[in-house]
Amino acid sequence: MGERTLGWGLRLWVTLVGLLLVAPTLIVIPMSFGAGSTFRFPPEHWSLHWYAEFFTSKQWLASLANSLQVGLLAAALATVLGTAAAFGIDRARFRARGVLRQLLMAPMILPGIVVAVAIYGVFLRWQLNGTMLGFVLAHTVLGVPFVITSVQTSLAHYDPTMEKAAACLGAGRFSTLRRIVLPLIAPGCVSGFVFAFATSFDEVVIALFLQTPDIKTLPVKMYESIVLEIDPTIAAASSLIVVLTTVLLLVPQFLRRRSHHD
């Protein structure tokens, strides 16, 4: 199919929509270099003040540390559970398989606020709210669907006769798993991990309910910096996250591209 040029109307439309799509990013980054103590845009004077504030404030740093810890633990747990589940769905042949897959994907589809309130309700009873374990468990559940999807994508290109070939050549079950299966699905696991981490790092609805004054995640702190106080440190935090997420999301792209070149 040949290339077509767009009419001016369509061109204008695409430009406007593109502007709408990048608008928030275009706001956040200049805001973070402002010097004023309000949310005025564009800032009247420029400085690195809010970055300095972010990196010297105990509260902001503690919330960043919490988010990183919750994200890494939840992503690791979700990757283990999700990878095993993806294999189960791929290999097992029983009737409820499709239903089970839908159920495992449910955390992705059901309204976030209902899930948050429901989890908060039982975590209050189990005294898990305001604990690291509580955050990790809740975010693991959100991450599992992403891992299942990305591992399933790698499994789709995967030829099960490889395992038989390995077995024929005398490899035991464990060494087949380690030397054949895992390397083949590794890109899927890595992108699943990254997505699960990004989901947890960004999650705020459940975290708002589970947080206590002692333990907050970064998005919760950001939420409070708008609602409770006008604290422009959020602009610095936002810009840092935009950069971090961009890097994180480029990793799976890069891995996929590399595995295509092989």
Binding site: V80, R91, A118, G121
Partner: peptide
């Protein structure tokens, strides 16, 4: 293949406790 469905168990168990049980409770 017959064994493979056990692989679904850990994820299903965690989801049951941390997701479906809370939903059912509320």
């Amino acid at each position: 293949r017959a064994r493979a469905h056990w692989l679904l168990l850990p994820a299903a168990a965690v989801l049951l406790v941390v997701f479906f049980y809370p939903l059912a409770t509320i």
